[in-house]
Design a protein around this nucleic acid. Sequence first.
DNA 1: TGTATAATCAACACAGTGTTGCATTGTTAG
DNA 2: CTAACAATGCAACACTGTGTTGATTATACA
Lengths: 215, 215
Amino acid sequence: MVENTYPPKEKTDRRIQRTRHLLREALISLIKEKNYEEITVQDITERANVNRSTFYLHFKDKDELLYKSMVEVYDALAETMLANKKEQTGGLNLDHLSDAADFQHVADHAEFYKVILSEKGVASFVVRVRKYLARVFTEHILEMGVGSAPRFPLEAVGHFLAGAEIGLISWWLENGKKQSPEEMARMMLDMCAFGTYWALGVPASPQEEAEKSEG
Amino acid sequence: MVENTYPPKEKTDRRIQRTRHLLREALISLIKEKNYEEITVQDITERANVNRSTFYLHFKDKDELLYKSMVEVYDALAETMLANKKEQTGGLNLDHLSDAADFQHVADHAEFYKVILSEKGVASFVVRVRKYLARVFTEHILEMGVGSAPRFPLEAVGHFLAGAEIGLISWWLENGKKQSPEEMARMMLDMCAFGTYWALGVPASPQEEAEKSEG
DNA sequence: TGTATAATCAACACAGTGTTGCATTGTTAG
DNA sequence: CTAACAATGCAACACTGTGTTGATTATACA
């Protein structure tokens, strides 16, 4: 009897699991030491203690290895945010935009994100995540029902939020994750909702308050 | 007589200028077509119509070529922001944080930034710019004199702002720079000062307003 | 125009790649 | 437990790109 499941299981053999895991770990471990671009397949297989030809049985090249690792994390992120969205019950508001769930997700994959968001990291992944976040934020803003007169293009706001979140996350990871995911979510939410003047405990300058009430 | 100037002029010879310019342009042009990592020195010299060995008379490898191109832009950015800072006269406020000058700088180097911030771009440059912006923002916040009780670590706010600005810039460039630098600066400033609710023309939710006034 | 020096060209050893055929080992199903 | 077979190890291959060299040609500048 054929199982005919999708995605195909195919990973039953422990050797496959073991090899792929070793290669993945070796790559992550190497990215900590040198730029991704400088890493060779030889380096990876050497560290993984796997024959070089075996590498090619599993991956086309090192990019595919990285890509498949990324997709795994990326899918987990998407899943996290989707699940988070579904449990929303009416009364949508910006709270959702930075529910602790996404910071929790980052914490769960801290090592991966720390490496990949660093100077030694991979541009394509960061940009992809930023675009993904921007899309999610923008869609959510739409569902929230914006007021009669949004002052700026919604997409711009989405990208602003996405960039800001990545900025916060990078700072968080580089400084040893001293805050809890909940604290980080609160930071994100508060700064988005009330602005940075408020976050700093500084009153907005007079002319700006004037502009605000006139607008 | 020895000139002994610093930095050394050395670029008097037109041949040098010409060659380096050709190589730089070739690299930028190639990044538009394929990932930076896939580009070879051969590709670059071929497109620049320069002998491969000539390349090595000027640069150690393609990383150095890119790095020197980056530094040029990066220095220009730093200079822009420093000049901008100096002409501030008392009454510091967040306005400075996104004076149109930096968006103007990006506009002046639009092609470079568009490529380098894209999926095909270079992680190290983006991270470096983000960190630089975060530092500038944080320092400025300090000089501004924060209130007695900043609610979050100042560095976190700095990284939030830096990420947000990069998010906005990326969106701007990807969408064909339809806004003027001044419009972009206004977006950045307003969203930072008043928050995204305000930017969207949506009132903050009641419990948040309560939290705000209690804080 | 003369001279310094930049660019070209051909050739080199060397790194890493991607693939192959065959031997060896480990896993799983029966 | 054992047989079948799938995954891995191993050695060798052609190929591409690198970084350097020495001799030669082209050109900028004074």
